[in-house]
Design a protein around this nucleic acid. Structure first.
Lengths: 354, 354
DNA sequence: CTGAAAGCGCTAACAC
DNA sequence: GTGTTAGCGCTTTCAG
């Protein structure tokens, strides 16, 4: 009978012939209850199909033991793994994680956040969201907040990110060492970390004296975003010999366009992504990319939250994880007429730490 | 100040110089409040950074306006789209959806379900879960339950599925019409719908008199599951000319193994998946598969739940959605020595409705 | 139109 | 050890 009244602690008490508080004690596994009564209570509870009301408990304890997570976009497998890490760590710490997605829209995201806050979750993880700073700061007034894949600039807010600028450097180093000079970047628009990848790219290109060879076109963290970016690139007269796309999802879109136009990868154009999502490893995608430890990042966010909750830490912590380069088949030397460069200021192995 | 006490309706009332109930009325947008007081209340609320406590509200109203969703596995993009459909429809109906995943483990899944139930969500959607029937039935005693991608056999439980047997038929028809006779099926183990796909496959093969040509090997709804299944298949003496893999994710794993072994697809072996997940459409995956309208399925599940909630419907409803065949490049005629069959009892177009 | 009072299901002192 | 008593923050009759 859905919507039929649920049995309460009171019903259980009556059936077991004890008081409410005794039931409460048993349900919470308190030690100082006689074995006999404990049994009676448990029996009554199971006969009634009693299920503790977490709402009532949360109201009185002012603690729900649930962590709320706002996800920007589940279509990006990157976040799916972050979720894995969050759930695992949350469960290990006797908490539960509840998720909400923002469908890549700031409006939806703040609704999602608001919902979680009103539900009085113990803490909030914002994973890849594009929420305005004020919304984030306001949230932090109500519950501990940890950002994933977006750096925090506020004392009350923790964050765990990879070093996007370092990742971009790895990409440029790799491509330059292969001999590329004219390198384009299809950026991630307003996506989390996109700005740093972009500026990291530009800075590194300048470092090589390739400022005028560096071109940036707008994109997004989606297949379509990558495709559109490459489209724009191909309209230009001087075609780049390599493209650094903002993330793997977008890189897949980019590859599709390139191949549709009959351009060989990596023969005519090299392509690099970011995230090392599983799709990047597929035989015929075979994308050179940047790896960041996603599960670990999710788990770390949970730890940061619980640390504030239990320890009462007030100072913010910003965990930055170094990314690594994963070389696959989508990158190679530029076509012959571009003379291979002899610049090679940094070692680049199969897998380089930044 | 995280964990600092939240302002309550009482604080707002005091600051605005009115009673608690007036504040409550304003917060819920009741019409019969003078404009002046309404303003005063709203002002006080925003000055205080007041955020209604949904826990308290839920406790007294016995209604949370949140729908709980247990997901079997977010790594399967199939469910990501189901999630989209759920969120969209929930929001359209002034509800929120909160997600929990089961990490493909029955134990985790029932914990997730239990959490949601204790939180007194208004309804529960079980998407692709492998929960034991008793757990599902028990849940239904506490809240309306709708199953996605798994058929319900209980009067209290709704479900929305695609017709897996019909989908399997479409696959067999397609392959047979191409001339295949020896066809293998890598199944989905205990995954949702796996049993029906398997039996649909076998039944249809029998229908063609191909019983002895039909071979089934165990697999799972994961890349590794598909890979392992094909491995097993290749050990056998009589190699099939076509493989129907339980879902797209597994099919991708299967393709990898096939190509690693140097087998041409579809030249030597044809491969068909199930779900038409976006990865299936990638240029170099290019997988023939079965499409089911995922978003719509998620949305429908929400509608079923709300229908019970509002209308008090007691009878269960089972929505079955017909799947369609999507032909891509992973299927073709069998290698020459297998004489093309002339059996073709059913039309098979580029996209056939079952 | 507004305020007072009761109580949702549970926990946490505090008595017995 | 076990029962009693106050609330947690909010909604909801029911009087003014």
């Amino acid at each position: 009978m859905p919507s039929g009244r649920h049995p309460t602690i009171h019903d259980v008490a009556a059936r077991a012939g004890v008081s409410k508080s005794l039931v409460s004690l048993v349900m919470r596994g308190a030690p100082q209850v006689s074995e006999e009564r404990r049994r009676a209570v448990l029996l009554a509870a199971s006969e009634l199909g009693y299920r503790p009301n977490a709402v009532a408990r949360s109201l009185v304890r002012n603690r729900s033991n649930v962590l709320g997570v706002v996800l920007s976009d589940l279509h990006n497998p990157f976040f799916v793994e972050v979720v894995d890490g969050i759930e695992e760590e949350a469960i290990a710490s006797h908490h539960r994680a509840l998720f909400n997605t923002g469908s890549r829209s700031p409006g939806r995201e703040s609704e999602a956040l608001e919902t979680l806050l009103q539900l009085r979750v113990d803490g909030v993880i914002l994973a890849g969201t594009v929420l305005p700073p004020r919304a984030i700061v306001a949230a932090a007034a109500n519950a501990p907040v940890a950002l994933v894949a977006r750096a925090s600039r506020w004392p009350a807010i923790d964050s765990v990110t990879n070093d996007d600028r370092a990742g971009a450097r790895l990409v440029v180093d790799h491509l330059v060492s292969l001999g590329h000079r004219r390198i384009a970047h299809v950026d991630g628009g307003r996506g989390a970390g996109a700005a740093d990848r972009r500026s990291g790219f530009l800075t590194r290109m300048r470092r090589y004296g390739l400022t005028s060879d560096a071109v940036v076109v707008p994109g997004a963290f989606t297949e379509d975003g990558g495709a559109a970016g490459v489209d724009k690139l191909l309209e230009q007269s001087k075609r780049p010999t390599a493209v650094f796309v903002a993330n793997d999802l977008a890189a897949v879109g980019a590859l599709r366009v390139l191949r549709d136009r009959g351009l060989e990868v990596p023969g005519e154009v090299s392509v690099v992504g970011y995230d090392n999502v599983s799709i990047a490893g597929l035989d015929h995608v075979d994308l050179t990319t940047i790896e960041q430890p996603r599960r670990e990042m999710g788990a770390e966010a949970v730890r940061l939250l619980l640390d504030r909750l239990d320890g009462g830490r007030g100072q913010s912590r910003h965990v930055v994880i170094p990314p690594t380069l994963v070389v696959r088949g989508s990158t190679g030397p530029p076509p012959a007429r571009s003379a291979p460069s002899d610049m090679r200021p940094f070692d680049t192995e199969r897998r380089t730490r930044s």
